[in-house]
Structure formats: C-alpha cells, structure tokens
C-alpha cells in the first residue's frame, strides 16, 4: 500500500467525521451567507478543532470570500484546504525531528498517562533503525506497574537494548546511566521513556524538570528533542497539557497518537494553531510501521481524499 493510501486509511474516520461534513456544508450549490458560516463553525468545533481556532478559521474564510468575491459555497472548500494547510505547515524548517548523524541525539518522550508513550517509543525505534541509526532506549518510567517490562518487550521486538533500573527507583538515575551508556557505546539516538504524569501535578513535573537537567548536564553537546505525546481523542485539554509541559521542559515537537481511532482529527489543527509547536510524528494505526513523519501537505491531501 502506498504511503498516501495508508495515511488515507488511517484518517478514514476523521475524513468521515470532518471533511465529509464540511463538504456537505459546502457543496449544495448554496449561497455563501451567515448561516453557512455558522454551520461551518459548528462542524469545526465538532471536529475538536477548538473554539478559538474554529472562530479564527471561519473569520479568515469570511475575509477570503470578500477578497476573492466568491459566490458559491463549493468554492470555499479549496480555500479551507489552503488555510488548514497553512496552519499545519507553520515554520517549515522546524517540522522534522532533530536528528544529526555523527552526534548524540536524545529524544525525551513526555506526556500524560495513557497517551501511548511507550508504544510510540517502540515504533519510533523501529522507524529509526530502518533509517540506519543506532538506537538505545532508557526505561525512565519507573512508576507504573510493568512499564519497564513493556519497554523491554518492545526493545526485543525491534532489536535494541534498554537501559533500566528497578521499578520504583529514581528515574533520574536511569537517565544518568543511559546518557553515560549512549556516549560510551557511540549510539546515535537515545530515546528516553518517562512516566505518564498529569500536567497539574507539580511534584511530578518537577521530577521531569530534573530529568531534563540531567540530560543537559551529561550531554551538553547533544541534540535534544523533547517530544510531547498527545492522544488525538483528547479534547481541548490537549492544549492545556502542551502549555504546561512546555513551561517545564522545552517541548520541541508533538507526536499525535491514535489518529486512526478518532473522527475528530481536527484537534491537530487547533494544537498547531494555538501552540505553534510543530507536529512531528503521527500514529495512524496499531502496526509497527504506523508511526509516520508528519507532512502537512500529505496530511491535508489524505484528509480531503485526493489521489496520489
């Protein structure tokens, strides 16, 4: 299956829940009027785009209609696509994972409970190995029962080693060991798992701050990517999560998981728009290779069901 087709399949639900509704609103030879804009706004909100971004998008559409003197609703679809693409692309240069061969690269994976951090790490390791990186994993989730085992199983599946300590031990110590090991073994990429933490738990966020500090101290030269994992089925709280995590550790990218499971992939637009943090990876299925680099153009194409 082609890349775009797989992406399309993963986005089927979102397409049905979002784009087809938009098309429904926009295609019936309707005149462009206030009612139409209101309908559009509703559709956006229902897709978890979020109130602010929805209002903004609709406002932009209004302006475009005036500028381009559009008459028929169906013409708006193209405009909508453009605008969504614009939001999602943002600053192009920052849209890829911070990885450099010949240097130590660290990917610190953070997020609230149950978004799929450990699974993402497994898949990410698989992705990077295919690209010929030497990868090491660190089991920094020492809190949740069997989280270490879960990561170790992933390590075995994709064939990478996992630095670990006992459950309940200090995650800082594991990270310290892992940093040392990454250097001495000349690994290209060190991916660090962390315990899920709700962003309003101050003590846990402090622990995370400490982990980030250890990385910076032990590997001052390294590229550090802090990847915030968000669950695509999360609603507006995703924005609150991103904001708080960013205050504590310098979040450089977002990985949006479980996109295939939601009809509301619109959250991706809201997140990008409100936070200006680039989305770097998306999870669109349960398979090993269903973690993808995020390409705004492809995403919009797949969303609007265009041919390859």
């Amino acid at each position: 299956m082609g890349f775009l087709n797989k992406l399309k399949e993963g986005l089927t639900k979102t397409r049905q829940g979002f784009v087809e509704k938009v098309s429904g609103v926009l295609s019936f030879n309707k005149a462009i009027d206030e009612e139409l804009f209101e309908e559009l706004e509703e559709t956006l909100i229902q897709a978890d785009v979020g109130i602010n971004t929805s209002l903004k998008l609709v406002e932009t559409l209004r302006t475009r209609v005036k500028e381009r003197k559009l008459k028929d609703a169906s013409e708006l679809k193209e405009v909508m696509k453009e605008e969504i693409s614009k939001i999602l692309t943002g600053d192009k240069e920052k849209n890829n994972l911070l990885l450099e061969k010949g240097k130590t690269n660290v990917i610190l994976v953070v997020g609230v409970n149950g978004v799929g951090k450990t699974t993402t790490i497994g898949k990410l390791a698989y992705l990077l190995i295919k690209e010929k990186y030497k990868v090491l994993l660190a089991a920094g989730d020492t809190f949740r029962a069997a989280a270490i085992d879960q990561l170790v199983i992933w390590g075995q599946r994709v064939g990478v080693e996992v630095i670990r300590n006992q459950e309940g031990s200090d995650p800082g110590a594991v990270v310290f060991d892992a940093c040392k090991a990454a250097v001495s073994r000349r690994e290209d990429v060190l991916i660090i798992d962390t315990a899920g933490r709700l962003h309003n738990k101050t003590n846990l966020m402090e622990e995370l701050r400490k982990v980030a500090r250890i990385i910076r101290r032990e590997l001052p030269e390294a590229n550090v990517e802090v990847l915030l994992v968000l669950d695509a089925t999360t609603g507006q709280n995703a924005i609150s999560q991103a904001r708080t995590f960013r205050e504590v550790v310098d979040v450089t990218g977002i990985c949006l998981t479980k996109l295939d499971g939601t009809a509301k992939g619109g959250v991706i637009i809201g997140i990008r728009d409100e936070l200006k943090i680039p989305i770097k990876l998306i999870g669109i299925g349960e398979g090993m290779d269903d973690l993808r680099d995020f390409q705004a153009d492809d995403f919009v194409k797949a969303l609007f069901n265009e041919e390859e």
Binding site: T234, G235, N237, A263, K264, V267
Partner: peptide
C-alpha cells in the same frame, strides 16, 4: 472513559 476525551466521547 478518559475524562479528557474530546468530541469523540
């Protein structure tokens, strides 16, 4: 159900 679930709930 995760309390943070959005419109998809």
């Amino acid at each position: 159900v995760d309390a943070m679930t959005g419109q998809d709930a």
